[in-house]
Simulated scan of single mutants.
Amino acid sequence: MRIAFHTPLNAYDDGRISGDRRMARQLVAVLEGLGHSVTPGIGARDFMPTPEPERLAAHEGAAARRADDLLSQWRADGAAPDLWFTYHNYYKAPDLLGPKISARLGIPYVVAEASDAERRASGDWARHTAIVRDGLSAAALHLYFTDRDRQGLEPWRSPHTALVELPPFVAFDREPPRRAGCTDVPRLVTVAMMREGTKENSYRLLARALHHLGNRPWSLTIMGDGRRRPEIEQAFAGLPEGRIAWHGAVAHDRVVAGLAGHDLFIWPGLREAYGLVYLEAQAVGLPIVAFDSGGVSATVRDGQTALLVAEGDEAALAAALQSLIDDPDRRATMGAAARRFALDERTPAAAAAILETALATALANHAARRSAGGRDIAP
């Protein structure tokens, strides 16, 4: 099939480090591997940080013009898509193209990692949320990565709209290196951007948890940079001298090799969508310590490859860290299980098997919907 692939949250070809952008590229690669012809970057970025009606109107106007241009182009060259695939839309980045173009072309509309926010259904974001919900109703298929997203999408499950789990997966150019052997001083590592909001809050929680472990032997490597680095460095300032190694921004092709030089991956992950870095760390054989927050649980096997603790509980985070610092045999056992999990279960091949079946379901749902006169079942 010819597939139009749209990413309203972030531009597809934006080269900045981001799990969102990376997952988009992975999805395109898997679809192409299944034999489809995929055109990514089909529309503009429609992220809106604030809800002013004028901002939304400007985006809607630009999207309408883009839709007309695309339809004219496809009429001229006969290369209209057979299916529309939108990745990651929500109230701040609604899909202003997919549902309308799909309806005009009479093609299936598929969405991956969409989310709904009931608390935004009224107030300043109400119009944005209504647009998202129109798209949720129009979709023949929703691919969800986490159970949190599934719960939000359940009201849109219907005979003509399927919900299919697509667990987060990670692609490697070559087999990741294995973790080096355990050392007398356990080497902790974390990888995250240093920006305000939940990333900074996760760093601060990590720093506070580490203060509980001052009498234990450990070191921490931090790979990441950003505009909040001075404030984040200050949060770690009270820890014993020499414990923290600040590596700054590290090129993505060097991150995995860097992870392999450590014994344990720690990132609290407050409200993390899921976090591909958890899969990368497991792939080299590192056990994980994190909060059971957001979609983190979708990337690990709690109790087998990771220790997850209640969101925000820094004492529990410290206790989980301490238990693995004190038990090298358990670290090794969990690390081996982590590598098997990431490299055997969370692969592009596994994602391809799910996508192949799911797209067939989308085509069937679309045909059934059209036979029923295009009626949708919405909440």
Rank of each mutant, 00 (worst) to 15 (best):
V170H: 09
V255G: 06
A349I: 01
K199T: 03
L153G: 01
A360D: 14
Q234R: 15
F85Y: 15
L213K: 05
L34G: 03
A351W: 04
P159L: 02
T198C: 01
R179F: 06
P99R: 13
A358W: 08
A273H: 14
L210D: 03
T39H: 12
S323D: 09
A57P: 00
S37Y: 01
V255L: 08
V277Y: 03
D116F: 04
P155K: 03
D302I: 02
S219N: 10
Y109Q: 08
D124H: 03
R127S: 06
A4T: 02
D313V: 09
F5K: 09
G248A: 04
I3T: 05
G312D: 11
R195P: 00
L317T: 11
R331W: 04
W74D: 13
R243I: 02
I354M: 09
R340I: 07
R243M: 02
V38H: 04
T333F: 00
I101S: 05
R330W: 07
I42W: 12
A257Y: 00
G373Q: 04
L163A: 06
L97R: 07
A316R: 13
D313Q: 06
D14H: 11
T146R: 08
A350P: 07
D292R: 15
L213T: 01
V191Q: 11
D376K: 11
L213W: 10
P40D: 04
H211Y: 00
E32Q: 15
L324W: 01
P230F: 12
P53G: 01
V28A: 03
A273N: 14
D77S: 10
P94T: 08
I222P: 01
L270N: 14
V300A: 04
P287N: 12
T161E: 00
G61V: 00
A318M: 08
G152C: 06
V296W: 07
F341I: 02
R243P: 05
R120F: 04
R254S: 12
D149V: 09
D302C: 04
A80Q: 10
A62I: 01
E356Q: 14
R346A: 06
P8H: 09
G275R: 09
K92W: 01
G303C: 06
A130H: 12
V132C: 15
E60D: 01
L317S: 05
W74C: 13
G275S: 08
A207Y: 06
E54A: 15
R216Y: 08
A58E: 14
H59R: 15
S293A: 12
L105A: 07
A192P: 00
H262S: 04
A209W: 10
R22S: 12
G373P: 07
G312S: 07
W84N: 02
A57N: 10
G238A: 11
L163S: 03
G242K: 12
S219A: 10
I244C: 08
L83K: 06
H366M: 03
R204K: 14
Q151D: 15
H6A: 11
D292M: 01
R254D: 14
A140D: 02
R271E: 15
L355V: 05
P108N: 06
P177R: 08
A368D: 13
A298L: 10
A24K: 07
G135F: 00
P159N: 10
S323W: 05
R243D: 01
R340D: 15
H6E: 08
G98I: 04
L317I: 07
R204T: 10
A273V: 13
A209Q: 11
S202W: 12
A121L: 06
V38T: 07
A130G: 13
